[in-house]
């Protein structure tokens, strides 16, 4: 059944946002930084584009980050957009097929003052495949891309294109922040594809490591930071995206 009544969408979105907020408060978050930088970084010093897969879109709730999320302009995106607004995310509507150019312009504008959070396989997939919008945005904005892998110790998976993850209560969530990738501002079409593949490989690699750590523990050589629920300083991101 598809929701089309605007009033019903508003009510369902509000309730869903409250449930998500309470639900995610039970999840224990660990952040693993692969390089010297501490992420999320202080946006007044240096800004980044944080890229992670669409299936992990609930995780920014843990950071209390003001992020901007790219959501499809198709009708079924309206409910998700309203849930995101209730959660404090900014919303940019667009996709590869509808309004994508406008969305990128809006994100580019935001990049001048804050971090960006981007799910490069969203909003409509294919799953875990980076679309070139992220790369051109990074090139033109000058912000390095941090490939982030996210995994849960225990999670339910939706039957959606992205196999959206809903972590089970009191489960573990691991975020692996890879080394930042800088993309030259004048990159050409061939270069775009090379960097697209590089970012995709690094995201898959970080995801694989996050999955291993989420299932098998966090001992090892990494610098691990425990993030108590609700104590993370607000990321100066967004009013800015995805």
């Amino acid at each position: 059944m598809k929701l089309r009544d605007p009033r019903l969408i508003r009510v369902v979105a509000f309730v869903a946002a409250v449930v998500v907020r309470v639900w995610m408060a039970t999840v224990r978050l660990r952040v693993v930084n692969r390089d010297a930088a501490e992420h999320p970084a202080d946006a007044d010093r240096e800004r980044f584009i944080y890229a992670f897969w669409h299936e992990s879109l609930l995780v920014p709730v843990k950071f209390r980050a003001r992020v901007r999320v790219l959501i499809s302009k198709h009708a079924d995106g309206e409910l998700i957009a309203q849930v995101c607004r209730h959660l404090g995310f900014g919303v940019v509507r667009g996709s590869t097929t509808r309004g994508g150019g406008e969305a990128l312009v809006e994100l580019w504008d935001c990049s001048r003052r804050s971090h960006l959070v981007f799910t490069p396989d969203g909003p409509r997939g294919p799953r875990r495949r980076v679309q070139p919008g992220l790369i051109i945005l990074a090139a033109r904005s000058g912000l390095p891309v941090v490939p982030v892998g996210i995994a849960f110790g225990r999670a339910w998976r939706a039957r959606s294109w992205d196999r959206f993850a809903v972590p089970k209560p009191f489960s573990r969530c691991v975020c692996v922040a890879g080394k930042a990738i800088r993309i030259p501002p004048e990159v050409d079409r061939d270069g775009l594809e090379r960097y697209r593949r590089l970012v995709e490989e690094q995201m898959l690699d970080a995801t694989e490591e996050a999955e291993r750590l989420a299932l098998g523990g966090l001992r090892g050589r990494h610098r691990v930071r425990r993030v108590p629920a609700g104590s993370e300083p607000a990321e100066r991101s967004a009013d800015a995206p995805h």
């Binding site: 994508g100 150019g101 809006e106 945005l137």
Partner: peptide
């Protein structure tokens, strides 16, 4: 033109004409 082309074109227009075009 795809979304990447349109975005690139708008960036070039803004740089060339020194104007700001909002989304």
């Amino acid at each position: 033109l795809d979304s990447v082309d349109i975005f690139s074109l708008i960036v070039e227009i803004q740089n060339k004409f020194r104007v700001k075009i909002a989304s």
